[in-house]
Design a binder for these strands. Structure first.
Lengths: 216, 216
DNA sequence: TAAAATTTTTAGACTAATCTAAAATTTACA
DNA sequence: TGTAAATTTTAGATTAGTCTAAAAATTTTA
């Protein structure tokens, strides 16, 4: 169908467009740990295949076909992550690299059976929504914990940094998906947040609060 | 670690040596659906990496390192096949191509967890033994059903043809792993076997009997 | 708005795996 | 045992994806 590399480019472009409203050659290169020249070559190839819209120097967007491929990969990635955590008992900070490989297993029937085996989960272990087999994905209404005002309460729904170190830190202080937190104070001096959860008081930095996403 | 292609060559060489006591360039090419010239190139590369013993025109054997890689791939292939059949409810004729992809997922921890999740199965859906995490594999004592004499009884333990058409045929006539069969007659004319199982009488060709393996 | 800085693309080369065609070697057998 | 057949290897190309270095285009800024 499409090569491993093409799939990674499409996924990367999808994620960049999700956040930035545009995906530059340099951004794509950075996210794939490759060089801008390599990206340009691949953009030409993907445009040739009608998976992206591309004009020299003008940036890229995904065509409906490209979007479909990207969402298929993201679906597989998130279902495999769910499997690894829910069935094989891996921790949420351990599964990313394995899912990066598993997402390229081609069989659609396999992923549909896996989804059924797990009873149609709606979210992956990091709180990201899982596209259905038609490539439809539920938009999430989320805000960073940083946006909460004093005395406001919210439920942790996802994280925007998937690095192992961040996830391990959250695990350690028990700020995990589904936990309800209340912002009990915002420090004047450094604007850190004091949050209360499970009757425990925790102090978290602005950086942490930025990457903790709260359901709206 | 090793490339996808290197892994396939090592696996193929392992399987050929299992059956033939030697793996020729042409045999490897046929089993990998490639050309002899390509095989020669790869043999040089694998010899360079000390995964095979190779001298021009003299055929190949696996080094201990090469054997370990091959058994690692076979272990993954068979555990994934077991997963697909036992957990995802695929039929035994549907899983080969998926397992061909899954066997290259690199994580050893993943495959060990998968093995644990399935309670340490000893055989894959086709009756082939699953190597343990040290790469040790139990030798099976098997003979083709063709070798059974009249009135002899045996239990189907494995199959030596993994093609979908053969497996579907066996499924249809219900000659599956674990079934006990008795050779009730050997036809004089065409040497077909009449076998009885579950109180039903079946007539099978010599070709089928050759590929049905009976536990000794 | 023109020079400077940045970004992107092009040109040309490299690697892994493949191929065809031809040459070298081994095996089979008359 | 020597020639024919079969097998295997070499030589030289090709493709996908990557790279560096240099050129081109865009954006920033003074």
């Amino acid at each position: 169908m499409h090569t491993y590399t093409e799939e990674n480019y499409l996924k990367s472009i999808y994620h960049l467009l999700e956040q930035n409203e545009q995906a530059s050659t340099n951004d794509i290169a950075a996210s794939l740990k490759t060089r801008a020249a390599s990206v340009t070559d691949m953009l030409k190839k993907l445009a040739e295949k009608k998976l992206i819209n591309y004009a020299r120097y003008q940036g890229v967007s995904l065509t409906p076909a490209g979007q479909k491929v990207a969402l298929g990969i993201i679906r597989k990635h998130r279902l495999w992550e769910h499997f690894l955590v829910d069935k094989l008992k891996f921790k949420w900070d351990e599964v990313h690299d394995m899912a990066e490989e598993l997402e390229h297993i081609s069989s659609v029937e396999l992923i549909n059976r896996l989804e059924q085996f797990m009873d149609y989960p709606q979210f992956d272990p990091h709180g990201d929504p899982i596209p259905n087999s038609n490539g439809e994905i539920k938009a999430q209404l989320l805000q960073p914990a940083l946006a909460l005002t004093q005395h406001q309460t919210g439920v942790i729904a996802a994280v925007s940094d998937h690095s192992a170190s961040f996830l391990q830190y959250l695990e350690k202080i028990q700020l995990t998906i589904g936990k309800e937190i209340k912002v009990t104070e915002i420090t004047d001096y450094d604007l850190c947040l004091e949050v209360t959860t499970d009757n425990k008081v925790l102090n978290i930095s602005r950086e942490v609060a930025k990457n903790l996403l709260i359901a709206l």
